[in-house]
Design a protein around this nucleic acid. Structure first.
Lengths: 366, 366
DNA sequence: GTTTCAGTCTGAATCGTTTCAGTAATGTAG
DNA sequence: CTACATTACTGAAACGATTCAGACTGAAAC
């Protein structure tokens, strides 16, 4: 059944209530905001009249304008908003943010920077927020420029700050290095890397060493650097023995496809380093489907240590990072910045390798 | 390293730009909002001056106030905000909402109704939104009252509407009935039910038949009704042969605990009906830990058909519902309501049982 | 030469609060 | 009785934009 909404009569405001009662508008305001500024009797009368007139409560926009405080912090998504919910570890990070602001009467405004016309960054410009959490945006992104133009308190996540803004990052390079080293120590000599997108607007596929150097995304660059530095330590020729594949989307199905590509390379990798557990999960699914035994025939290392990683059988060897803490720290820093309190200019959280059951020596070791 | 934010100089506004250039404020406004209302040359000069003065762009709050449009829709959480991210199927629903509003330049404002003082519903009253999506709030919840007081366009999700507001629900009763019937057809006679919380502020534990009747949450009530009605069809004595346990939180670990409780009842259930896949997952984990074979020794049916359900080994038998579609529909309805367009007054999405590998006849069947 | 009209630009009102200096009335102290 | 707080309330100015009815051009139309 279809319905049409009825036209609404003119809004009730403080003015009407004041007129009805013959008091000043400021008195009505005080009745709501400073009960001790007027007699209890009058206050009750004001509230009563408000109820009688069907008042919907002080208008948040007017209040925000006057108070210069929006009551929300913004999180911007370069692409679709849905990303906030599809990536489980990102959700974990947001959960951390949520815990940081839980007592502050702040909302979390999720904004999509995506727009039909590339030059429209409306949503970011129009967002009524007290600060931004910036993540997954590289320096060349117009969205980042739009955010910075707002000159609001902002905190970077998973990438170092600019403009003197603070940041919360993790030891991406160190974690990646540890992961690669683990495989190399086990004896693997041909590796496949499953990378997250290196730049904005790229496509799935194998990445040449030259392209690898140009990643715009800090975290991806750091992780590649980590893998590479471990290879160097072991005297492995990166160009020859390590194939890098990038997947634009961070979903198991993309990892699955990528696994197929990597495993048809020569020399065939005996181990795969994935930049996320989601992608690693895809590799495991590919292996199951093609009867490749893990870890006997193929080793897999993830990144993130998502809750799922420990629950999988076999348990996924992966690089642990504390997403909740990352979000919480970012939230707290932003909060301090907004309030004008002291805040850490930059925090780096540790990572460490968690060895579970998806890694073992390569099959044909002597 | 700790830093303190520098004090900010007074804000640049349209007024300053206008004064600097010797034009009217309205002209500056037009430069931003109606480029065809002034000569390109002047427009460029205005923009140039704005840049020179370090203007941060039109203030969203002022703009919202004047335009009577917040540019966001609100989703309220009764408890912690983090719930939005911990429940994977809820995230899926939000993802659906996100797709519905993707072209509308709207943000998604997540609000926690939780507060230290029970009577403060600040966040809801202060939220600058154009409408609300209401879910998981029962009629007696003060938060719901606070939302309704705002008299904004709102859509109910997973529960029927009040005040003539539209709603999007799923066939909870039908799905539940189908699930229970499936088990009964397989020959199970003693069932355990893993329920989501029946009311606000309850605790984990076995629920007596009397308490069961009093569930404040619509969806939970419907599902219980469905289970019960199937039992009746098969002539099963509900009080004797069906034990209901409620878990306040909807996490695998809670399902795990609950499974332990249910399976120590006499008569011991040979099958468990869980009201969510998260809880069902916990049951499976409990079974694995205690060496109980599924489905040979214990059958399990979930609810939701979360993405994980199909990926599990063995695949989880569960009641499918389309969370994405539910969110999308709710989003679209709210959008129509906001715009004053026609909207469906109420939609019920279908559910159906997906039989996978966690259900089989009970062990001692003759 | 007057009318018309599109193109630019202006002034003032408005959106619905909050805030703050100030007034009048009452109480309290010296 | 004067001086000084205290309490209860008021008026008007913000907050920073948008909007809309005009006013003023200069050119095209008649």
């Amino acid at each position: 059944m279809k319905v049409k909404s009825r036209g609404s009569r003119p809004r009730v405001t403080f003015k009407e209530i004041a007129k009805e009662l013959g008091v000043a508008v400021s008195t009505v305001s005080n009745a709501y905001n400073r009960p001790n500024q007027l007699s209890p009797a009058l206050r009750e009368k004001v509230l009563e009249t408000a109820r009688k007139l069907g008042y919907s409560g002080p208008d948040p926009m007017a209040r925000s304008l006057r108070r210069r405080r929006a009551g929300a912090i913004g999180v911007v998504y370069g692409d679709e908003l849905s990303y906030a919910f599809t990536d489980p570890v990102h959700a974990l990070m947001l959960q951390g943010v949520a815990t940081a602001i839980r007592n502050e009467h702040l909302g979390l405004l999720l904004i999509s920077g995506w727009s039909e016309k590339p030059e429209e960054t409306c949503a970011v410009r129009d967002a009524a927020v007290d600060g931004f959490l910036i993540h997954t945006l590289n320096n060349s992104d117009p969205l980042l420029a739009a955010i910075l133009e707002r000159t609001l308190p902002s905190v970077y996540v998973d990438r170092p700050g600019t403009d003197g803004l603070p940041s919360v990052v993790v030891e991406d390079e160190g974690g990646a290095k540890e992961a690669a080293r683990h495989l190399l120590e086990l004896g693997h000599r041909n590796l496949g890397v499953l990378a997250l997108p290196l730049s904005l607007g790229v496509r799935d596929g194998i990445i040449s060493p030259e392209e690898q150097a140009e990643s715009e995304y800090w975290a991806v660059r750091q992780r590649l650097k980590g893998y590479r530095s471990a290879a160097q330590e072991f005297g492995i020729a990166w160009e020859k023995n390590v194939t890098v594949h990038q997947s634009v989307e961070n979903r198991p199905q993309d990892g699955q496809v990528a696994a197929g590509v990597l495993l048809s390379q020569t020399p065939r990798p005996t181990a795969i380093l994935a930049m996320s557990d989601q992608l690693a999960l895809g590799v495991l699914e590919y292996a199951t489907e093609h009867g490749i035994r893990v870890p006997e025939e193929l080793s897999v290392v993830g990144f993130d240590d998502a809750p799922l990683a420990a629950r999988l059988r076999p348990g996924l060897t992966t690089v642990h990072q504390d997403h909740l803490e990352k979000g919480k720290l970012a939230g707290q820093t932003l909060l301090a910045l907004i309030k004008g309190e002291e805040y850490p200019s930059s925090v780096t959280l540790p990572t460490h390798l968690v060895v579970r059951a998806t890694t073992a020596p390569p099959p044909e070791i002597v």
